[in-house]
C-alpha cells in the first residue's frame, strides 16, 4: 500500500522532468525538445478540429433520440478544451463523433485538414492509430497485458518494431511515474496508477489529438489533481490538442476554454483563465 500511495502522491511533473522523456506531435527527435515554443507559435492558430452543424440521431426503431443538434465548433492545434454539461447532454456523443468513433447523422467534421465523411472505416481507424490517443474514465486497459504491454500496443498497431515499441513504452511509463510497475497487470495497480497507464498509452504514439472522457472521474481529488497536472504539462510542452469531457469544474478550469452543452447543443463556449503555476 505504502509504495503505491507514495507513487501516487509524487508530483508527476517532477517525474516527467527526471525521466527526460520526449513527447510531442509527430515523430520529433529527442534533441528537438529544447525549442518547443517556436513550433507552438507557428501552429497555434491552425484549426485541428472543425465541426459544422453536426447532428447525431439515434434511431432504435421505436424511439428517435436527437443526441446532437447542429453543433459547430473549431479547436485549434495545441488547445486544451473541456466539454461540460449535465448527464445526457451529448458530451460523450460529441467526443465520439469528433474522434471518428461514431458517425454523424448530418454536418461535417474536418480533422487535421481531412474531412471525416470522405474517409472509410479503415482510413478513419488508421487515422486514429496515427493521430489520436484516448483516455477513458474507467481506464479500459487490457487486463491480460502488463502495464508496459498496454502502453506499447498503440505503437505496435501503428507498425513500430517490437523492440522500439517496448523502449518507448517504458520511457513513457517512466514519464507518468510507473517505471517500477511496468510489468504489473492492471488488476495489480491502483485506480490512479491505472489511469496513468491509460495516459501513457494515449500519449506514447505522440498523437496530435488526445481525447479524454472523464479522465479523473474514477479518481480521488488528490490523484485527480496529479493527473490534470500531468495532462496540462504535456499539453503545454508538446502542443498536443486535448479534448476533455468532464463533470468536474476544477478539471475544466485547467483547459484553455470550456464548452458547455445542453440538450445536444452548445450552450456556451468561453476561454478559461489558465493557471500558470502548474
Amino acid at each position: 500500500m505504502s509504495g503505491h500511495a507514495l507513487v501516487c502522491t509524487q508530483p508527476l511533473a517532477i517525474i516527467a522532468e527526471q525521466g527526460g522523456i520526449v513527447l510531442g506531435v509527430g515523430r520529433r527527435e529527442k534533441n528537438a525538445v529544447a525549442q518547443p515554443q517556436a513550433t507552438t507559435e507557428q501552429m497555434m492558430d491552425q484549426p485541428i478540429i472543425v465541426a459544422k452543424d453536426v447532428e447525431k440521431v439515434y434511431d432504435t426503431g421505436k424511439v428517435r433520440v436527437h443526441a446532437l443538434r447542429g453543433v459547430s465548433l473549431t479547436i485549434t492545434r495545441g488547445e486544451m478544451v473541456a466539454i461540460m454539461g449535465p448527464s445526457g447532454c451529448g458530451k460523450t456523443t460529441l467526443l465520439n463523433v469528433l474522434s471518428g468513433l461514431d458517425e454523424v447523422s448530418a454536418g461535417t467534421i474536418v480533422l487535421d485538414g481531412r474531412p471525416m465523411e470522405s474517409m472509410s472505416d479503415k482510413q478513419r481507424t488508421r487515422f486514429r492509430a496515427e493521430k489520436m490517443g484516448f483516455i477513458f474514465q474507467s481506464y479500459n486497459l487490457m487486463p491480460v497485458l502488463s502495464a508496459v504491454e498496454n502502453v506499447e500496443l498503440p505503437l505496435l498497431v501503428a507498425g513500430s518494431k517490437s523492440r522500439d515499441a517496448r523502449k518507448r513504452a517504458l520511457e513513457t511509463l517512466a514519464l507518468v511515474g510507473l517505471a517500477d510497475q511496468a510489468n504489473q497487470r492492471p488488476a495489480e495497480l491502483s485506480g490512479g496508477q491505472q489511469q496513468r497507464v491509460t495516459i501513457a498509452r494515449a500519449l506514447v504514439n505522440h498523437p496530435a489529438l488526445v481525447w479524454a472522457d472523464e479522465p479523473t472521474g474514477a479518481l480521488d481529488s488528490e490523484t485527480s489533481g496529479d493527473i490534470m497536472d500531468l495532462l496540462s504539462r504535456l499539453n503545454r510542452e508538446y502542443e498536443q490538442t486535448f479534448v476533455l469531457v468532464t463533470h468536474d469544474p476544477s478539471v475544466a478550469a485547467r483547459g484553455d476554454r470550456t464548452i458547455f452543452m445542453r440538450d445536444g447543443a452548445i450552450e456556451s463556449d468561453r476561454p478559461n483563465q489558465r493557471p500558470t503555476g502548474a
Binding site: 474522434s99 468513433l101 486514429r128 489520436m132 484516448f134 487490457m142 498503440p154 498497431v157 498509452r201
Partner: peptide
C-alpha cells in the same frame, strides 16, 4: 478500446 486505438 482496441478499435479506438487503431485496430482495424
Amino acid at each position: 478500446v482496441l478499435r479506438a486505438m487503431g485496430f482495424q
